[in-house]
Design a protein around this nucleic acid. Structure first.
Lengths: 204, 204
DNA sequence: TCGTAGACTGACCGTACGTTCAGTGAGCTG
DNA sequence: CAGCTCACTGAACGTACGGTCAGTCTACGA
């Protein structure tokens, strides 16, 4: 991989521009209601141009999902780096997530539709190849962190995978709530709320 | 409301049949990929017949959501009746939910898409009128139960609405996982897992 | 038995969307 | 400057779907 030629840079820039536009439109209208026409307009190119960079609509949507979720995961992973205690890691991860969605309000709707594939079996297969691995990876990473904490006796023994799911989806609910409310409590408060519940449950 | 005439019974039966078919197709393909043609075939009627009972596709989908979610809520509410402790109520609710989804595997995909509206503003408005209130009501019911428990000192003080969201979505994650796995732990085990986490957190 | 009402059908219509491709023009080369 | 290249365009095409309605069938009452 030498330095990029001018053409490559332009090429990558176009891809970026189109994906960004796709992300905004999907965030606005939802995955299925987002049309190529609107994405093209949002990107400031003609509809046909998109097909120079993406085979078809499915590929565009899949790649867009992939890019977006990769960004989020990177931010969360980064936040959990180092050998802090589990509680600190959780707090950091929650903070990173809330920050990401604050900077990137539009993305949450796209993110929500990551969970379950839709449409005909072919689309489902593509979704399985592209999006699900990303989601599974992020769940898996949290699961292994939880496992380590269990081995250290930092927390009780549970099925780590189920626990990771519960934590991720539970906190997603709060994120969604934040995005839909016009005014929310401070991010600090929500991070604290989540950490409290997860670490200590609700018993007095 | 006197006894139903024969016509009314037939009428209601048709509506039931069509809604059941719609539920199965939506569960299979997702809300947006479900076509009137396929729903009609599934119901064993002609496409035109559906329009004798529902104004348009939107109304069919909305009514179907409404009916399905109402059933689920009724089951969960019933399970939480009586003056048991919060822990017992939670356990009963979780059990009811898992049972419902076991008997009704197909429904979970439809249930998942309840959260956020898609499409143009008009569809979003309809969704807001029909589905969201149901969801909000169920969250609200749990929130008020939690509030009572807080007042009794049974649990710590939290924002009851956020707490309800966290619990519902966290346990949904487990439901989704169960539905997607080929073989899951016993329902008992998952109910116990959820109750443990929620009541006592993960700290040893 | 005939006639009528109305439930039901499915071919048809309009529309909207994904995809294509002949054409355009900006920019590079000789 | 002429000629060529190729990224880009957007009108046009095919398809698939929601919605319609003229026609068919069935059941029931006279």
């Amino acid at each position: 991989m030498g330095p990029k030629s001018k053409e490559e840079v332009v090429h990558d820039f176009r891809i970026q521009t189109i994906q960004d536009a796709a992300m905004r439109v999907i965030a606005r209208k939802g995955k299925d209601a987002a049309t190529m026409q609107e994405i093209a307009e949002e990107a400031g190119v003609a509809k046909g141009t998109i097909y120079l960079y993406f085979r078809d609509r499915d590929e565009l949507v899949a790649k867009t999902f992939e890019t977006a979720i990769t960004q989020l995961i990177a931010r969360v992973e980064e936040a959990m780096e180092g050998d802090k205690s589990l509680e600190e890691k959780l707090r950091a991860a929650m903070t990173a997530k809330l920050e990401f969605f604050r900077e990137n309000r539009e993305f949450f709707r796209l993110y929500i539709s990551l969970r379950l594939p839709e449409g005909d079996p072919q689309q489902q297969r593509r979704h399985k190849r592209t999006c699900e691995p990303q989601y599974r990876t992020s769940i898996g990473r949290l699961a292994s962190i939880l496992e380590t904490a269990m081995n250290r006796g930092e927390i009780r023994r549970f099925d780590s995978h189920r626990l990771a799911l519960f934590i991720v989806e539970g906190s997603n609910a709060i994120v969604v709530q934040r995005v839909m409310e016009e005014s929310s409590p401070s991010e600090q408060d929500d991070v604290e709320f989540l950490t409290q519940i997860i670490m200590g449950g609700i018993r007095p």
